[in-house]
Simulated scan of single mutants.
Amino acid sequence: MNEQHSAGRFETLAIHAGQEPDPLTGAVVPPIHQVSTFKQDGVGGLRGGYEYSRSANPTRTALEENLAALEGGSRGLAFASGLAAEDCLLRTVLRPGDHVVLPGDAYGGTFRLITKVVERWGVAWSVADTGDPASVRAALRPETKVVWVETPSNPLLGITDIALVAEITRSAGARLVVDNTFASPYLQQPLALGADVVVHSTTKYLGGHSDVIGGALVTADQGLADELAFHQNALGAVAGPFDSWLVLRGIKTLAVRMDRHSANAARIVETLSAHRAVSQVLYPGLPDHPGHETAAKQMRGFGGMVSFRVAGGEEAAVAVCDRARVFTLGESLGGVESLIEHPGRMTHASAAGSALEVPGDLVRLSVGIEAVDDLLEDLTRALG
């Protein structure tokens, strides 16, 4: 990265880190290197270290350098999906006989990957309330190698004190992995708080426009970064050039989008909290939300994800989802458009019947950047 942009505030790094103007044409946006292989100047004579796009591609390199800068890491790695990133990480740091601590409230895809795939390699897992230090300590075993945290969590918006859990994890000789998808690096930087690895679904807030699937890992541990890069190449689930370019384009506006997501969410929370059809609102910005003080300490803002429980039970919650119109019924999150979903039957169906099962009366919102009054009118109508 050019010395001019090697440091700076977040908004500047988002636009410039890893994205110097093209040296040949002066293009201010990195080109899409839609290519599988690169000409070599003699056997082993690589230009810029590029030989084959699974191993490295200039567009992906730009994204990876940008991600590392935003999270304050030494290296970023971009993948074909968030779960591909998680798979690479787990294959890198775990061996048969190892143990993983999962949060009691985790993304259903992560739960499925660990309990249906990783467990078959001989890796054990258990669940802890990562918002409670005593619960984390009780879950640790001599063979624990990874403590997995989501904060805010999906879909109950649970908050974990990253710095505190990092101390506990480090003393046990394990690695702390933080899924930072809900917060984005604009609102929270786990590496600075002691995490070993940050995970992202770049599909979500980083991409920001519901038009790309991707994932990322960022670490400040150069030795671990080298191991992850080896497995990234060996496993091959890398981000393609166009997908990398789309995520880079989204990141340029991340700061302004997150400000609007957060502002809209705060207004929606006010309305939901006063509505007779809502029995509980889950949002880190609420003073009575568990972990609110921790969130205020370690986050720049409270984000655009809101969950709430419907007073009439599961069928009433499903009906609210079905009646929404401006809020689109759909999975995923973090796009400019607002989404509504029923986690129990949609994103977290894989956790049904387990310790991670979510309440049937729960509705999850990904609050977009539309006119907030339109969103409020739509929700009020959907709630009846």
Rank of each mutant, 00 (worst) to 15 (best):
T253N: 13
I268K: 10
P284Y: 10
D221T: 09
A229P: 06
R300E: 11
G173P: 01
Q222E: 14
H209S: 14
V247F: 11
H292N: 08
D196Y: 12
G215V: 08
K204G: 06
Y283M: 01
Q189M: 06
A255T: 00
G223V: 10
A172V: 05
V218T: 13
S244Y: 05
V165T: 09
H209G: 10
N264H: 05
L224D: 03
H289C: 04
V165A: 06
F302P: 01
R276E: 15
R257N: 08
T271E: 15
H200K: 05
A166Y: 00
S262N: 00
S273C: 10
A234F: 13
R300Q: 10
S184G: 04
R175W: 07
P290F: 06
I251H: 02
S244Q: 05
M299L: 07
Q222M: 14
V218A: 07
V269T: 06
Q298L: 02
R249I: 08
G215W: 12
K297R: 15
A274C: 13
V269L: 11
R257Q: 07
D211H: 14
P241Y: 02
Q188D: 07
L282V: 09
S171N: 12
P185L: 02
T219H: 06
G194C: 13
V177K: 03
G194V: 05
S244H: 07
R267M: 08
V165P: 00
R276Y: 12
P190Y: 02
G215T: 15
I168D: 02
V177Y: 00
H275G: 09
R257P: 02
A295I: 04
P290I: 02
E270T: 08
T203Q: 06
F182Q: 09
G173A: 00
F302W: 08
L193Y: 03
A195W: 04
A237L: 15
H289L: 00
H209R: 15
R300G: 00
N180A: 13
P241R: 07
Q298Y: 01
E293S: 13
V256Y: 15
V178Q: 04
Q232R: 15
Q298M: 01
V177W: 00
L254M: 07
T271F: 15
A277L: 08
A166V: 03
R276W: 10
H292K: 00
Q232A: 15
L206S: 02
G301C: 06
T271C: 13
R267N: 04
A296S: 10
A183L: 04
Q222V: 13
Q189I: 05
G291H: 12
L187Q: 11
L228D: 10
V269R: 08
N233T: 15
V278L: 14
T202N: 03
H209M: 15
S201M: 14
A263P: 01
L282G: 05
R249P: 08
D211R: 08
G240C: 06
L224N: 04
T219R: 13
L272K: 03
Q188K: 14
R267A: 12
A295F: 05
D288N: 14
Q189S: 05
A220Q: 11
